[in-house]
Computed example of a mutant assay.
Amino acid sequence: MKQVISVEKSLLWGHLFSMAFGLAGLLIVLPNPDLIAKLPEIGKTAFAWSLAGGGVVYMLLGMAAVAVYAYRTVGVWHWLGFMIPAVGLSLGSELLGTSTGFPFGHYRYLTGLGYKIAGLVPFTIPLSWFYLGFSAYIIARIGLNQFQVASWVKQATAIVIGSVLLTSWDFVLDPAMSQTAMPFWVWDQPGAFFGMPYQNFAGWFGTGVVYMTVATLIWNIKPLRLRKTDLNLPLVMYLSNFAFAAIMSTAVGIYPPILLGIITGVIPLISLYLKAAKTETIDSLPIQATVNEYPSEKMPIVSVGGKQ
């Protein structure tokens, strides 16, 4: 288990470093051609690599970090029970969006995010739906467990809040990434929200609700085992990606979406995270300590729902 945690932390640090490296390239090096000319050969090579595949690397590392975290904390069933619907349904939504304009509006992806499935959607995009969606959903779900209401009410609320948190990230990311010096997608249907149609956010929220609902139904088949205080990686994952988007928005002079994202995303997420640390029940059932299959770990595993 220590080796798994070590791998998980390494992937997270790699994700954070690659985002920082990408920001430096997009916001410092790219707008300054003279700086590029002055770089040593290794610097020019690194910059060229960053432009060609930096976006792919940081999303692959983000997906891998959350996948390992999910495997370690909730097990294979619940990890794949979330990841497969998240990737599959978001890909279907993106393919529909880029070919018909529904549900997001008319847009198309450019280069920099990897091989395009069907020539339309970079394969990395559904991965980001998974790792940000899982991070938002798991914090929402555990954070709501201290409320004394029916389990189905808490689960439905977690789906809604998880989808709102996911959409809040997009408030900040989408305008910036389509208006940076090297845009990653363009809107053929400009809208009132800093060049984007409001329909885009309805599409984001709706897609999140659909795949989180499917994942919740799959999770209900088997009891959920979770280390209730082990939510640090999802918190860091969400906040770091939000910060990436906020820095990009600041660089292109777009500020209101950052405030909107903080109000609807960052503040609720941190509040739920703090509530999760205090919760004494999960899904309205008392926490039951089980035998820890990893003796080196001192933190108890809790069982959630279903028969043991």
Rank of each mutant, 00 (worst) to 15 (best):
N241L: 07
W219R: 11
V164D: 02
V186D: 05
S10M: 13
W129E: 06
G43P: 03
V87F: 10
G112W: 09
P234R: 11
D230T: 14
L272D: 03
V87D: 03
V302I: 09
Q146N: 09
F201H: 08
K298L: 13
S135L: 07
W49R: 02
G81Q: 10
I28K: 04
T124I: 11
D283K: 00
F134Q: 05
L120D: 06
L120S: 09
A202D: 00
A118P: 00
G191H: 10
W204C: 02
A118Q: 13
V87I: 14
V121A: 09
S90F: 12
A158L: 03
G191R: 08
W79C: 15
M59I: 11
F194Y: 15
S240Q: 02
S10G: 12
P257D: 08
L127N: 03
Y115V: 10
T213L: 13
L166T: 09
L91H: 07
A158R: 10
A65G: 05
S93M: 12
K307G: 12
V66N: 00
P85N: 12
T264W: 08
G206E: 01
S296T: 14
V7Q: 12
G88V: 04
Y137M: 11
T100K: 04
L233M: 11
G81T: 08
V7E: 08
L224T: 11
W169D: 00
Y131S: 02
W185A: 02
I138Y: 05
I258Y: 07
Q199H: 02
L51C: 10
G105C: 10
L16G: 00
R141D: 09
G208K: 07
L239Q: 02
G253H: 09
V68T: 06
Y255C: 03
E94T: 08
Y58T: 06
L272R: 04
W152H: 09
K116C: 02
M1G: 07
G55E: 14
P300K: 10
T45V: 12
V66G: 00
F47G: 05
S240P: 00
W185I: 04
L165H: 02
P103S: 09
N145Y: 00
K154S: 06
T180C: 12
N200Q: 07
I159T: 06
I247E: 10
H78Q: 04
